[in-house]
Design a protein around this nucleic acid. Sequence first.
DNA 1: TTTTGTAATGTTATATTATCACACTTACGT
DNA 2: ACGTAAGTGTGATAATATAACATTACAAAA
Lengths: 168, 168
Amino acid sequence: MPLMPAKPEYPHDHAQCSSDALAEAQRICARRGVRLTETRQKVLELIWGDHAAVKAYDLLEQLSGPGRAVRPPTIYRALDFLLENGLIHRIESLNAYVGCPQPGGQHSSQFLICDACSIVIELTGTDVVHAVADEAASHGFEITRQTIEVHGLCGPCAARHAEEAPVP
Amino acid sequence: MPLMPAKPEYPHDHAQCSSDALAEAQRICARRGVRLTETRQKVLELIWGDHAAVKAYDLLEQLSGPGRAVRPPTIYRALDFLLENGLIHRIESLNAYVGCPQPGGQHSSQFLICDACSIVIELTGTDVVHAVADEAASHGFEITRQTIEVHGLCGPCAARHAEEAPVP
DNA sequence: TTTTGTAATGTTATATTATCACACTTACGT
DNA sequence: ACGTAAGTGTGATAATATAACATTACAAAA
Ligand SMILES: [Zn+2]
Ligand SMILES: [Zn+2]
Ligand SMILES: [Zn+2]
Ligand SMILES: [Zn+2]
C-alpha cells in the first residue's frame, strides 16, 4: 500500500507558533537592517501555514488572486531573501521550502521528512554535525554547507501504518 | 573571489576505475536478472566519465549525435534503472547523477561535494549514519532514505585556495 | 523639499529539469 | 512461430527556475 497522504500531525498551538516565527523574523530583519517587505512577509506567512515544505509554484498560486497575477521571479526573489536571512530552508530532495524554527541561530540544516504526512522536523542536535565534520576532516575537506535530509515516517504516521498493516 | 572551476583532482587510474565499475555493474545486473541494455550501459559509462556529478541534459547531448536525437525520456528511463539497481546516485542539491563506487553494497548516501572542482566523494563510514539513526529514533521517526550532501572544498582545492589568498 | 541613488518589484521571455501518453520494437519463454 | 512483457521512440507538456530589462518605491543627502 502506498503512503496515505495526510496533514502533518504535530499537536501544538500553531497559530502561536506561526505568529512567533513572523515576529521573530521582523526582529531579525530590523536588527540586520534589511526590509521584510509585504511580499516577503506574505511568502513567509504562507510557508508557515503548516510544518510541511511548500513548493514555489504553490506559493505563486496562493499569492495570485483574481486581480493579481504573481510571476515566478516575485516568488523566487522573496524565497532568496528569506533563505539569505536564514528565515527559511530549502529542502533539496523536495524542491520545496520550509520555515526555520530557530532563525538567526545555528543552521545545521538537518531535517526529518515524513513521506506520509509531509511534516518537516528540523533537528538541532550536534552529534550528526560533529560526525560529518570528522568525516570531512579525515578527507581534508573544508565544509561550507550541509544538506542532511532524512526521509521516512514520523512517529504518528509510523504508528498508524503499523496499525493498518499489523504483523500477526 | 568566486570559486575557480576546475576538473576533479583525484590521482588514480581512472580508466581502470571506470572499467571496473562497468564490469561490476554487468555482474550485478546478471545476478539480479535485469538487463543492462546498450543505452543503460552507455549512460553509465558517460556518468563514469569522471568523478563529478553529471546533469541529465548533458547526458542527453553526449548521447545524441549527428544522426541520433535522443529525447529526455530515454535518459530518465536509463537513470531510473541505474538508480533502482544501486549503480548510481542522484545528488539532490545539484540535480545531477554520479556513479556509485560500491554498487550492491551499503547505500548510506553520504557525499562530499567540492564546489570548485565538482568532485563527488562518497563516504562509507557508519558514524554519521549512526548519529542520524539515533536522532531519528529519539523522535520516533522510521527512516527509509537519507540524503547527506556536504558542500565545500576538497583537499586539493582548499590548498589551492589557501595558496591564492594567503593570510599574511 | 527636492534630488538622487539604490533596493525592490513588474514584466516578458526563456532556460532547466522531468514526466506523460501512446505507438512501436525487441527479447525471451513457450 | 507465437504471445507477452520489457524496452524504446516520439511528441507533447509539466514543473522548477533564471535572465534581462523597465519601472517603482524608499530613504539618505543636498
Ligand atoms: Zn507550528
Ligand atoms: Zn507523518
Ligand atoms: Zn575514478
Ligand atoms: Zn575540488
